[in-house]
Simulated scan of single mutants.
Amino acid sequence: MKPALPLAGLCAAFACAAAWPATPQITVAWRDKPPYHYMENGVAKGFLLERAREVFAAAGLPARFINEPQKRIWANFQHGSTNYCSISWYRLPEREALAQYSNPFHEDLPHTVLIAPGMVERVQAHATLEALLTDPTLTLGVIEGVSYGPVLDQMIRSGKNKLMSRTVETTQMMRMLTVGRASYMFVDREDWEFFRQKEPSAQKLVRYDLPNMPVGMRRHVVCSRDVPQETMNKLNQAIAATGGMLNPGHSKPGK
């Protein structure tokens, strides 16, 4: 009979392998924000969703991408969800208290203004952002739960416009603007271009660029506090390896 030692040694080796911790799967949440990330005919699409998949793959991190509303995403961070990340968020102090941030992987252009039908002359009578926001006769459409960047957020809070604040996605707010629910709204330029190409009602809206609009914000991957620093380092290395912080033209920096 052959000695049992080699078999025992083999079993021990398998036991050791089984004991090695596998990299846990990370849940990566994204909100509906076309053309950044969105569903179309049951298929998840969007240039920043594709970029995020590329980053997690390059980092060697198993990830399950899911679509969730923006308020639920931040409630999950607040309530301590584990192995949880989300993509495409601005860096704000109140959010840094709940989650940790990767290096930026995209930079927006400055916001633009969309004007409702029948309100063009009244809105365009204001040549500066400050003048526009201090007109008490105008109604500004604002999406709850999102940030327009710290500068614009503060200007909106201290402004004198009436506010129509709704928990809707950007596309829904633009539709509401087409029927005159507000006088105007702020929007990412890429959101507007996507809407303009897809929705016939967009022809009712007028885009208006102001010279002193704050610079575009940078977008990051955010992760729950339990995600190890090693994992965040892998994400940052993968962001750098796959093109760094992309500009709004979706090309590599400097191109």
Rank of each mutant, 00 (worst) to 15 (best):
W20R: 09
A4G: 10
S165W: 00
V142E: 06
R219D: 09
L7H: 10
C11I: 15
P211V: 11
P24T: 09
R225F: 11
A116K: 03
I143A: 02
Y84R: 06
L98G: 09
R181G: 09
G254L: 07
Y184F: 15
K204F: 05
F186Q: 09
A238F: 08
N233M: 07
E169N: 14
M245Y: 06
W30N: 10
L7I: 14
L210P: 10
P117D: 07
L114W: 07
A125V: 04
E193M: 14
S251W: 05
L92Y: 06
N41K: 10
T82Y: 05
H220G: 09
A13P: 02
V215G: 14
W20V: 15
A52R: 04
A4Q: 07
T171V: 15
M119H: 13
E54H: 05
T167W: 00
L109H: 02
A29K: 03
K2T: 14
P34C: 02
T231A: 12
S201Q: 15
T128S: 14
C223V: 06
L177H: 08
P248E: 07
P150V: 04
V168S: 02
Q70I: 12
L133F: 10
P24E: 11
R175H: 10
A125Q: 13
G46C: 06
I115V: 11
A125T: 03
P69R: 03
W30F: 15
R225L: 15
H220A: 03
A13M: 13
R207E: 14
Y148N: 05
S183E: 07
S81D: 15
I26N: 00
M119R: 15
K71T: 11
H79K: 12
G145N: 02
H79Y: 09
Y208G: 04
F194C: 09
V55L: 01
A116D: 07
R181H: 12
G254M: 06
I156E: 06
V142C: 03
E121W: 03
G216Y: 00
V151Y: 08
V43Y: 01
G9Y: 09
L132I: 11
R219L: 10
E96Q: 14
L10Q: 12
K162H: 11
L92C: 03
Q237D: 12
Q197Y: 09
F186S: 07
M176L: 09
S183W: 05
A17M: 10
P253F: 08
P136N: 08
F105W: 04
N161R: 01
A12E: 08
V227T: 11
Y84D: 08
M164E: 06
A8D: 04
Y148W: 04
P110W: 07
S224M: 03
E230H: 09
Y184K: 05
L7V: 12
A99G: 11
A238Q: 05
G46L: 03
P136A: 08
A240P: 02
E107Y: 00
P104L: 00
P110Y: 07
K255D: 12
A63N: 02
A4D: 10
L10Y: 13
A57H: 07
L152M: 01
V221T: 08
G141P: 03
N212L: 02
A18N: 13
T242C: 05
R175C: 00
P214Q: 04
E94K: 08
G145C: 05
Q100G: 04
W30L: 10
V206H: 11
D32W: 02
T137E: 13
F195Q: 06
R207W: 06
D191F: 04
R196P: 11
K255S: 11
R166T: 10
P21A: 10
A238P: 01
K2F: 11
M217L: 00
G249D: 14
Q237G: 13
Q100I: 06
